[in-house]
Design a protein around this nucleic acid. Structure first.
Lengths: 161, 161
DNA sequence: TATTGTTATACTCTATAACTATA
DNA sequence: TATAGTTATAGAGTATAACAATA
């Protein structure tokens, strides 16, 4: 050693990500972490912050009156138990109401409240802007590409036509 | 109504995703949910299952002996507090050891154990295969495209050169 | 005064299984 | 017997703030 060590043994510039460098799921997971955090910041205080599914549930109930919990569950990739707790929570917050279906007494139909409808308007704008801002550093054409691929992936995973 | 209603008010085929249809962050978040769940299944029982950061920590400590917690924290987008608990956990599982740096007594250096090194070999193979399998339905050229874009996004978010 | 790491806490999500009611 | 939804619970991750030691 001719010189005293002044820097950490490994600095951030020297890092090689090992196999993760070429692992798509690694990038999906880390980018998700960052974009979800950013989204939560923007939604702070708004009843739909945190976790996945609240936003989708709100918008789906707003734009598809009478939609069933099990249908939303499929869209947000959750089971009925998780969906139930989500609906409880949103009902408690006065965002939606549930009614038993007259066609099938096992099933429920969800309807938006006035408060929920107002929040939906707000959330629609917020969510759109957040995604736009967060990914602004990616050129538009690449964003479109990314979205096209991920949309197909999502639809396949969720079992949509 | 000429016919009795036999189907739910809104069935999955009739769903329109509202603004989420064109929201990149929505797709990142949902695809993340699915890919993370699938990964957890494959890692079941393995000390690195659940949450983000364990896999990266294991591989980084294995391939960069003496790496510091704060450097890994930056890579996995966590704060020092979360990182500390991660290192505690992995130390308790006998996967790595920590030593105080001789250069800076505030800092630590992490080293892999034999058990950790063996797990790293296993995890490298598993993680690579999982990502490959999960995204197999996306054509290779699109996968490459996707990865190139997300890699740049990640490096920018993590502050890598 | 800034940095590295620790501790404590409160909150939330996650997964699972067992349950009721209806079809 | 299968389906829609409920309930209970154990385990884990997340975010925050306050803290000690060192540079």
């Amino acid at each position: 050693m001719l010189e005293p060590k002044k820097t950490p043994p490994i600095s951030i510039g020297d890092i090689d990500l090992d196999v993760l460098e070429d692992t798509l799921s690694f990038y999906i997971r880390t980018v998700n972490l960052a974009v979800s955090r950013d989204l939560d910041e923007r939604l702070e205080g708004l009843d739909v912050a945190r976790g996945t599914g609240k936003i989708t549930t709100l918008l789906m109930v707003d734009s598809h009156p009478g939609i069933r919990p099990s249908v939303i569950a499929q869209l947000i990739l959750k089971d009925r138990s998780a969906m139930g707790r989500l609906v409880d929570q949103m009902e408690n917050h006065g965002l939606l109401t549930r009614e038993t279906s007259v066609d099938d007494n096992r099933a429920q139909e969800l309807y938006i409240t006035e408060k929920g409808a107002q929040l939906a308007v707000q959330v629609r704008a917020l969510v759109t802007q957040q995604s736009k801002d967060f990914f602004a550093f990616i050129p538009e054409d690449e964003q479109r590409l990314l979205m096209d691929i991920l949309r197909r992936a999502y639809r396949r995973i969720a079992g949509l036509p």
